[in-house]
């Protein structure tokens, strides 16, 4: 028997496979394709205090082995989420990680309080790294002081495990990781999208409605693996690794680099069963190479 259970900063998961926020909706979207009970956790779309309309279209553009998106945190707001989306998710024996975002520290505090009081939230993933909103989002995550302040505020308002989702669009991500660790984060989610853009040479205009967007998909995987590698060795927090994971081998690369768990994002769009296929592939790898416990592989590439 292979042991797949992991613990992500206090969040006990039956296996390391989760979904990247914003790529898996609130769960029911993929239920026709995936048994949601099989997932290690479900990370839902980013939630803000008030509903958000999101950005104008086009919101997505394809790039070599990747996509740019500028959704802009469209979501129905925390109260709607608690009332309408959580009851559905509670049917499943899978922990729900809620991704939260805000325009101000008070927003983060209030969303944290409301979600912590709701039944069926297992952990909070704090989005301080969305590249697609004018206020908040990435601006919190690219300054070490502000990132720490946000995490501190969330920490003060919840007993749930707090996962800080960091932006790769910084000079020194290790410094920010250290900052949020000191501020009370229980785990780190690495990485959010890389800021990018695409220009249509025929119309001579940017393709995306919001001009710039976040790059995801296999194109960013080497960057994400490098960041997990660096941060995991510098900071004593478990890491939820993500960035272009399409296959079990990709997922294992993150685990070997130091991630305790992984999130499947863009791959869901191409293969709606990507999460469970990856989980199955990890099991097969472990059986084939005699790995008894997945935790043996975490950071195993370091020496």
């Amino acid at each position: 028997m292979t042991e797949l259970a992991v613990n992500l900063g206090g969040l006990q998961m039956k296996n390391p496979v989760t979904t990247a926020s914003g790529t898996f909706g609130f769960g029911p979207e993929y239920a026709p394709f995936v048994d949601l009970n099989k997932l290690g956790a479900i990370v839902v779309k980013g939630i803000t205090l008030k509903p958000r309309k999101g950005n104008p279209t086009p919101r997505i553009a394809e790039t070599p082995a990747g996509i740019l998106n500028c959704i802009g945190l469209q979501n129905p707001g925390v109260d709607y989420f608690i009332e309408k989306s959580l009851p559905y998710l509670r049917q499943y024996d899978t922990p729900v990680i809620v991704n939260i975002a805000g325009n101000s520290l008070e927003d983060y505090a209030e969303v944290t309080r409301r979600l912590s009081a709701a039944e069926g939230v297992a952990a909070l993933e704090v989005n301080i790294s969305c590249p697609n909103v004018k206020e908040g989002g990435m601006i919190f995550g690219t300054s070490c002081t502000m990132a720490s302040e946000v995490i501190g505020v969330v920490r003060q308002n919840t007993r749930l495990p707090v996962i800080a989702k960091l932006s790769p669009n910084v000079t020194d991500i290790v410094e920010i990781a250290r900052g949020v660790a000191e501020a009370g984060a229980d785990a780190l989610a690495l990485i959010n999208t890389l800021l990018g853009m695409k220009i249509d040479v025929y119309s001579r205009k940017p393709v995306l409605g919001n001009i710039m967007g976040g790059l995801s998909g296999p194109a960013i995987r080497p960057v994400a693996v490098r960041i997990v590698w660096q941060v995991a060795q510098a900071v004593q927090l478990p890491i939820l690794g993500m960035g272009g994971i399409m296959t079990a081998e990709d997922a294992l690369e993150f685990i070997l680099a130091g991630a305790t768990a992984i999130a499947v994002g863009t791959a869901n769009f191409i293969n709606p069963r990507a999460t469970v296929d990856i989980l199955e592939g990890i099991k097969q790898y472990m059986e084939k190479y005699g790995v008894k416990d997945i935790n043996e592989l975490v950071g195993a590439a370091w020496n």
Partner: peptide, 11 residues
């Protein structure tokens, strides 16, 4: 993007 209502790209 996804075609199943998850990614909110095609609004």
């Amino acid at each position: 993007g996804c075609g199943v209502g998850a990614c909110l790209a095609c609004v």
